[in-house]
Amino acid sequence: MSRLPKLLVLAALGGLSLTAFSLPASAQQAASSSATAHPKKLGLGRVALPEEIKAWDTDVRPDGLGLPVGKGTVKEGDALFQERCASCHGEFGEGAGRWPVLAGGQGSLKADRPDKTIGSFWPDLSTVFDYIRRAMPFGNAQSLTDDEAYALTAYLLSLNDIVKDENFELNNKNFTSIKMPNASAFYDDDREVAEKQFWEKDPCMKDCRDAPKVVGRAMAIDVTPDSKEGPKVE
């Protein structure tokens, strides 16, 4: 069952004998001591092999860390998209039925009904590539090659007018030079400053407001599942 090299087994056993002789309390201390204090290791687990890390560590960061060597053109991406993606996302990323819309909506973020797509909303191109390779097509994840992921990403750039040429090739060299339209519109959580009025010493308890009026009713909208009966349970 175990495919561990002998050396590792010995190392692990060494760790085991160390912890076996130490008191439970010291194990607790090791678990709760700070990361900088060189805690005593429990000696559990084994070293991950390079092939194993390569198989699982496929994530790509905005600065390009993790990009595999590869390439794909808008044109290649178009063909792939029609075959593998359009049944849910529509020929031009407009979304079929209730499936997500992938293109359009630029300039709509202040509108009453914003249209949040890759082109109008997503800050980083790396997310497109990473997510496609990780989770798409829905129901057949991790079935795309690196080159296919580059091609599909290129096609999505063209659908969103971020690149104009159908012969444009996206590759690991030019990837980080692409800037997304909404890249600068995100900022870190600032609730403790922007909403500091919600920290109140003494919230009002008596005669706090005028008589309230009902201005909206869920029952008027009537979209709640019928909650009188649960589904039939045999």
Partner: peptide, 17 residues
């Protein structure tokens, strides 16, 4: 990025909330 970011009225979004 696409999800779990909070779009505010000015068109900008909070992240890491």
């Amino acid at each position: 990025t696409s999800k779990y970011t909070d779009l505010l009225a000015d068109g900008r979004s909070r992240k890491h909330t």
